[in-house]
Design a protein around this nucleic acid. Structure first.
Lengths: 215, 215
DNA sequence: TGTACATCAGTGAACGCGCGTTCACTGATGTAC
DNA sequence: TGTACATCAGTGAACGCGCGTTCACTGATGTAC
């Protein structure tokens, strides 16, 4: 039906079957980003997007859930990399902290749907309890913790450099993370709200929650 | 198949057809709360839950979307009422502010799925832009603004009473809202995170963001 | 260098399912005479 | 007080659809001899 399908996709050569795995993940990520709904990332939609047939996906993933798990894992790695790279770009600890926070929010704004899936993934009933956590969920937590670690380090460095009089870097980093996440998600959900300038609001949150000296 | 269906539901009498409307909404809300997914709230599932057949819903709602819109509207009204009632329970402005914030977070924790649907509703691609906002979306914003108004008033009262040295109550209330929303959603998404005691974290957020005197 | 063959990366048809929505209908409830 | 009838709140069967998954298969790629 679609013109896309009429363009024959060259079959991978022997030993290069693994390449399709990456194409499947890319197609799934793109679909997730465009539709904003995890439910729209069906095996058949991903297959159409990747120019293959749906059963071919089973050669690379056990089932639909395994594929989605991988997409989420990738998104977490992207977020951690984005925030980590931004932090590494600054020498001064205070600038580093602000830079990391801006990068965190920027990631959520540039890829709103992908960010949402990180912390808003629907896992069905009962899965909000720790006791019934799946392995994938535990992995998500771990990856989320990596991103959080960048924030903790940035706050700690500010304390050591005398910029912050925070007495509990981990506690204050938690408060800051909470606020960054809140801004990222609320801003995407309620764009019609009369938001103050982003730079200013972020500076306020960092200053007050990480207890750094007002600029 | 189900034992529920074998219990015959008495048909409403003439002029009381409107009662079913409420039963449909209650069934949809319950389903949303139990499954945590908007996609699970299908017309057929709602009908099973309410003890009717699916086509009967069309007598009260134009289509599935209209039904879901109403569920979201109800949830917003609940949130606003919960926060407003909590605020009205305190005489002292500072206690009122803290009480309102605790109520906000408590609502999100007691009805995590219902809270999520308020600000995390999936409206498909392109609907993150203001320009393509639907009437329902605009209504959501309005109702969200009502809840926010309670926060603004609480902060303003603290300023007038001399408890807060906030110079921009609306700005600080925005920062506070962002943090409350962030805590509410992150805490539900990542329960395995080593969260500090809730009372303490909320107090910190209110104190630092609404600029009230440390207790 | 040539050929038979195993392997591998997918294909295409089919299954059963639950969905939103439509349609013609039913039978109890209330009303007009 | 009795009866024919309109109304109203739903029912039940059916439609076409996209889905996840299975199964037997195909045909190009590389390998053994």
């Amino acid at each position: 039906v679609t013109a896309v399908n009429s363009t024959a996709r060259p079959r991978n050569r022997r030993g290069e079957g693994g390449r399709l795995r990456g194409e499947i993940l890319a197609a799934a990520s793109a679909l997730l980003e465009e539709t904003g709904s995890e439910d729209a990332v069906t095996l058949r939609a991903v297959a159409r997007r990747a120019g293959i047939t749906a059963p071919a996906i089973y050669g690379h993933f056990a089932d639909r859930d395994a594929m989605l798990d991988e997409v989420v894992r990738d998104a977490f790695a992207e977020l951690t990399a984005a925030v980590g790279d931004a932090a590494a770009r600054w020498e001064d600890p205070l600038e580093r902290l602000h830079g990391a926070c801006r990068a965190y929010v920027a990631f959520a704004q540039e890829r709103p749907h992908r960010y949402r899936v990180l912390f808003g993934r629907n896992r069905g009933p009962g899965q909000l309890e720790t006791s019934s956590m799946t392995k994938a969920k535990a992995m998500d937590d771990l990856l989320g913790a990596q991103t959080f670690g960048v924030l903790v380090d940035a706050v700690s460095d500010c304390v050591e450099a005398g910029y912050s009089h925070s007495e509990q870097a981990l506690y204050d980093a938690t408060a800051l993370w909470v606020a960054l996440h809140g801004y990222a998600t609320l801003h995407a959900s309620v764009p019609a709200f009369p938001w103050p300038p982003e730079e200013e609001l972020l500076t306020t949150l960092v200053t007050r929650l990480a207890r750094v000296e007002p600029a």
